[in-house]
């Protein structure tokens, strides 16, 4: 389902605008948004995403969530890189098909930076950490 990323991000952005109550930031998403992007509240974050705030959006990877709580219908993490003005960013989302909502798992600057390193080029050799 890795090629499903275009539908996923499109529906996620639409959900941020139309049904924000069905988008749930988890982990440190809101704190990261405050710290790195001066987006103070959940409502402000959703408005930012819904209004085209994620520029130059590009698919990064898709893989099963490491914290999957059920093996019957494992949830997938879709991650994307983006820019906002001059700041690079990384966003990871999960389509929660069990509850029927969206989980916003990560929203922070990319930890790997913009310049690919050997570790980025050969992730299979060292294993890919989940951002």
């Amino acid at each position: 389902m890795a090629d499903d990323h275009a539908r996923v991000i499109k529906e996620f952005i639409a959900a941020c605008g139309n049904t924000p109550e069905k988008v749930i930031p988890i982990y440190n998403v809101l704190r990261d948004a405050r710290t790195h992007y001066k987006i103070s509240t959940k409502a402000a974050l959703f408005e930012f995403i819904a209004n085209g705030g994620l520029e130059q959006l590009s698919f990064y990877h898709c893989k099963p969530w490491e914290k999957n709580f059920t093996q019957q219908r494992p949830l997938l993490v879709y991650s994307f890189k983006f820019k906002t003005l001059h700041l690079p960013g990384y966003i990871a989302i999960i389509e929660n098909t069990i509850i029927g909502n969206w989980l916003l798992k990560s929203f922070h600057p990319p930890t790997k930076g913009n310049n690919p390193t050997l570790a980025d080029k050969f992730p299979n050799l060292i294993g890919h950490s989940e951002e």
Binding site: I24, P25, I26, Y27, V29, L30, R34, S40, T41, K42, A43, K67, F69
Partner: peptide
């Protein structure tokens, strides 16, 4: 405690943060 996911599930923080800002 079941899936070990943290978050502000009760939406309590936004109002506190916004009023402080």
């Amino acid at each position: 405690n079941s899936c070990e996911t943290p978050g502000d599930f009760e939406n309590r923080n936004d109002e506190i943060i916004q009023s402080t800002i």
